[in-house]
Amino acid sequence: MLDQTEGFVTEDGRKIGPVVMEMKNITLRFGGVVAIKDISFDIREGEIRAIIGPNGAGKSSMLNVISGFYHPQEGEVWYKGAKRPAMKPYQVARQGIARTFQNIALFEGMSVLDNVMTGRFRQMTSGFWAQALWKGPAEREEIANREAVERIIDFLEIQHIRKTPVGRLPYGLKKRVELARALAAEPSILLLDEPMAGMNVEEKEDMSRFILDVNDEFGTTIALIEHDMGVVMDLSDRVVVMDYGKKIGDGTPDEVRNNQDVIDAYLGVAHD
């Protein structure tokens, strides 16, 4: 199989680095319900890693474990070579893990620009008094980060709406703004929870292009959940398949596609 330390080169010539995050034997229970049962997988630097599975398989729970919303009863999360202690979501974010949500979680009352600027939270550290007076370090920092944010706005082609309140935007654009906000954090790992849910074909194509471009341009490691099989198979380097909280497949899209367990889970299996 894969070399644990080195990494590999994909068919299209992209370099995939060493493991950046590893989930070890994660088990998550809600009372008597077992949402995730003893799952292990890893995410490598620079790859696009998909998590797929039928409804209720525990995909979103898995993402919530990674981003610190849920704390698994058993198992360990290893990040950048160290075991991660139980953390609050904002502490996870400060370690460089950004995410988007299945149901858009933007700040509706703020403009697109302000929404994306909030993503720069990690990079903006000027103190309270500096901000109160605005001049000096606070202003310099604001302008420097504005430039970085404008690059991302350019990249995702949302320049024309930068001053529009997010509440007024259509769904597809909101999804893109949310991606922009996550990207603005310059994350080590970007988690996307169903980035294409509820989109038409054209919007899906746009979004796929952006995801690939992000990965290509910034070398961002991406872990995504998606239901559209075509999209998943085209985009991802490796795929984890979950069903009823268990891992039933893990590998390249081709390996997963020919895995009998996966076919059974998706197409159903005859019970005699």
Binding site: F101, L106, E108, D114, T118, F121
Partner: peptide, 18 residues
């Protein structure tokens, strides 16, 4: 922006590091 983020959606605010 931190305040408004908390106002508009506290969960999303927390996830971006507030």
């Amino acid at each position: 922006r931190k305040w408004m983020a908390i106002r508009d959606m506290d969960i999303a605010a927390e996830i971006i590091g507030v």
